[in-house]
Amino acid sequence: MSEKIVYTTAAVNTGARAGESHSPDHSYELNIDVPKEMGGKGDGTNPEQLFAMGYSACYHAALDHYKKEENIDNDSQVTLTVHLHKDPTDGGFKLSVEIEVGMKDLPEEKVKDLADKAHTFCPYSKATKGNINVTVKAVPYVEGK
């Protein structure tokens, strides 16, 4: 039995890290550029930023799933940091991720429990499991962050 596909999307890139990416229907387009830290101009977004944005939104949706399941309506925030490392095995690069979860007026132990559950449920977390180092931790909620 095959798994049911519920959504499909695509992106087109020209110019690699110094180019442009867009949806096939051109409803979403953005400039891609090498970060200044890597010798580029930094005049656009980069793949690591896009990955961080997508992963953080997907992870937060998984967190909301468990908050709803437990009737918790406290405000929450997810800060997902992507690191690009030199890979000594092939001279290329590899990623690691830090996920920090804060929830307003909730004990740190409860936040950590929900954060860990979300990590097992999030499709990005499932996709990266065993492939990149990902750490998940509870942090204080910062108003207006």
Rank of each mutant, 00 (worst) to 15 (best):
P24C: 06
D25Y: 08
D25F: 10
D25P: 09
D25W: 10
D25R: 09
H26K: 12
H26I: 00
Y28Q: 12
E29I: 12
E29Y: 00
E29K: 09
E29N: 07
L30Q: 06
L30G: 01
N31V: 13
N31E: 04
N31I: 09
D33I: 07
D33Y: 07
D33M: 11
V34Y: 01
V34W: 01
P35Y: 01
P35H: 09
P35V: 05
P35S: 06
E37Q: 15
M38L: 15
M38Q: 13
G39E: 03
G40H: 02
G40R: 04
K41S: 14
G42Y: 09
G42M: 08
D43I: 08
G44R: 05
T45N: 06
E48P: 04
Q49E: 15
Q49R: 11
L50P: 00
F51W: 06
F51T: 04
F51C: 02
A52K: 11
M53Q: 09
M53N: 07
M53E: 08
M53A: 14
G54A: 06
G54D: 05
Y55S: 01
S56Y: 05
S56K: 03
A57Q: 08
H60S: 14
H60W: 05
A61M: 12
L63E: 02
D64R: 15
D64K: 14
D64L: 13
D64Q: 14
H65E: 06
Y66T: 14
Y66R: 14
K67R: 15
K68L: 15
K68N: 15
K68D: 13
E69G: 03
E70T: 15
N71C: 00
N71H: 12
N71M: 02
I72D: 05
D73Y: 13
D73T: 15
N74F: 06
N74H: 12
N74L: 12
N74Y: 06
D75K: 14
V78W: 03
L80Q: 04
L80E: 10
L80G: 02
T81M: 02
T81I: 11
T81R: 10
V82S: 03
V82N: 01
L84M: 11
H85K: 12
H85C: 08
H85T: 07
K86H: 14
T89F: 04
T89N: 08
D90C: 07
G91E: 10
G91N: 13
G92T: 03
G92Y: 02
F93A: 06
K94M: 02
L95Q: 00
L95K: 02
S96M: 08
V97N: 01
V97R: 00
E98M: 02
E98V: 09
E98N: 12
I99Y: 02
E100V: 08
V101I: 15
V101L: 13
G102Q: 07
K104D: 11
D105R: 05
D105L: 07
L106T: 09
L106E: 13
L106N: 07
P107F: 07
E109S: 13
K110Y: 10
V111F: 02
D113V: 13
L114A: 03
A118Y: 03
A118W: 03
A118P: 03
H119L: 06
T120P: 00
Y124A: 00
S125H: 08
A127W: 00
T128M: 03
K129C: 01
G130N: 11
G130R: 06
N131F: 06
N131E: 09
I132T: 01
N133K: 14
N133Q: 08
V134K: 04
V134E: 00
